Simulated scan of single mutants.
Amino acid sequence: MKDTARAIELVGKTAILEFKLLDEDSPLASKLPGVIPSSEEDKVMKEFGDKVTEGDEILFGRHFNQETGVETKTVYLMKKQTLMTGEFLTEARVSLNQRANEPYVSISFDSTGAKIFEQVTANNKKKRLAIILDSNVYSAPVIQEKIAGGNAQISGSFTMQEARDLAIVLRSGSLPAPLTMLQNVTVGPSLGSDSIKAGINAGLVAALIVIVFMVVYYKMSGLIADFALVLNIIFLIGVLSAFNATLTLPGIAGIILAIGMAVDSNVLMFERIREELRLGKTPKAAIDSGYDKAFWTIFDSHVTTLITAVVLFQFGTGPIKGFAVTLGWGVFINLFTALIGTKTIFDLITDKREVKRISI
Rank of each mutant, 00 (worst) to 15 (best):
N232Q: 12
A130Q: 01
D292E: 09
L170T: 04
I333S: 11
L240F: 07
R99W: 09
M181G: 04
I36L: 13
V169R: 07
F19G: 15
L204T: 02
L59S: 00
G328V: 06
L249N: 13
A206S: 10
S106G: 08
G316H: 07
K51L: 15
A148N: 10
E354P: 03
I256R: 05
E354G: 08
P176Y: 09
I154Y: 02
I237E: 09
F295Y: 09
A286W: 00
S265C: 13
V120K: 03
T53N: 12
A309K: 07
Y218F: 15
D292Y: 06
L59Q: 01
K352P: 03
I345E: 03
S174F: 03
E91T: 09
A140G: 02
I340T: 11
L96N: 04
G69W: 02
K46T: 10
D165Q: 08
I273F: 00
M261L: 11
K219R: 15
M214I: 12
L348I: 14
P189M: 01
I211Y: 15
E87A: 08
F64I: 13
A198M: 12
F64W: 06
T304N: 07
F323R: 06
L268E: 03
D110M: 02
V303H: 09
S135Q: 14
L28T: 11
I209W: 10
L240W: 05
V311Q: 05
E91D: 13
Y76I: 00
D110E: 03
I132K: 05
V137K: 00
T337I: 06
V205H: 11
I237W: 08
A177R: 15
N136Q: 13
G330H: 05
V142R: 14
W296H: 09
D351H: 13
K51P: 03
Q98K: 13
I345N: 02
F243Y: 13
S157C: 03
D288E: 06
V185H: 12
I320K: 01
N97L: 04
T121C: 03
L170C: 04
S301H: 01
K293C: 00
R274M: 05
F64K: 12
L83G: 08
Q98I: 08
I360F: 04
I234E: 08
A207R: 00
A338R: 02
Y291V: 01
D351Y: 10
L268W: 01
L279N: 08
G55D: 12
L268A: 12
T344Y: 09
S221L: 13
G316I: 07
V212W: 06
V137R: 00
L10P: 05
S106M: 09
A7R: 08
E118M: 03
K293T: 06
V212S: 10
G316S: 06
L335K: 06
A258E: 04
N101C: 02
N244M: 11
G290R: 00
D226P: 12
S95Q: 10
L312H: 10
A242M: 10
A309Y: 05
L204I: 07
A167S: 07
L339E: 07
L133H: 04
E354H: 14
V239L: 07
D42E: 14
L166E: 08
W296P: 00
V205W: 15
A202Q: 06
V75G: 10
V120C: 06
A177L: 14
G150M: 03
R6M: 12
N266L: 05
T180Q: 14
P250D: 15
V11A: 15
L175P: 03
D300P: 02
D25A: 11
V94T: 08
I307K: 10
T112P: 01
A167V: 01
K352A: 14
F88C: 05
I116T: 11
F213S: 09
